[in-house]
Simulated assay, not measured.
Amino acid sequence: MSQSSLNRRLTQVFGILLGMGIAVWLLRGFGVLTFLPGGIIWLLFLAAIAVAILSYVQKTWWRF
């Protein structure tokens, strides 16, 4: 897999995780998904941040 396609894939995963995190957060705030613990929302946001950092490192570090 080339670096540009890997970076594109990581960016897509970041967008999906961030979108899911925001959607779950909003639905929980509106009272639709009240059964979900707050830790799941934190995990989605932290996973999105980790993927964004990995995407940045992959783009700037030539050996990765």
Rank of each mutant, 00 (worst) to 15 (best):
F45T: 00
W61G: 01
F64V: 08
R8I: 04
T11M: 08
R63S: 09
S55E: 03
V13L: 14
L33T: 14
R28N: 13
L27G: 11
I16S: 00
A50F: 14
I53W: 08
F14I: 02
F14R: 12
Q58N: 14
V24S: 01
L18V: 04
L18Y: 15
L6A: 11
G38K: 12
L27A: 13
G31Y: 08
V51N: 05
F45N: 02
F35V: 08
V57I: 07
T11S: 12
L27V: 03
A47Y: 07
G21E: 07
Q58W: 07
S2L: 06
G38A: 07
V24L: 10
G15W: 14
I40L: 14
T34Y: 06
T60R: 15
Q58Y: 10
Q12I: 06
T11L: 10
T60N: 15
A47R: 02
G29E: 09
L36G: 04
V32D: 07
L17S: 02
V57Y: 05
G15S: 12
A52L: 09
A47W: 06
G39M: 09
Q12E: 05
N7V: 05
T34C: 01
A47L: 12
A48L: 10
L33D: 01
P37C: 03
G15I: 03
Q58H: 15
I16P: 00
A48E: 09
Q3M: 13
N7D: 00
L18Q: 12
I40C: 01
Q12D: 01
P37D: 13
P37G: 13
V57S: 02
R8V: 03
T34Q: 06
G39W: 15
I16D: 00
V32N: 04
V13M: 11
G15Y: 12
R9Q: 11
I53G: 04
L44Y: 12
A52S: 08
L6E: 09
V13E: 03
R9P: 00
P37N: 13
K59C: 02
M1Q: 04
K59M: 05
S5V: 10
R8T: 09
L44H: 09
L18F: 15
W61E: 08
R9Y: 08
I41R: 04
W61L: 11
Q12K: 09
Q3V: 11
M20Q: 00
Y56A: 12
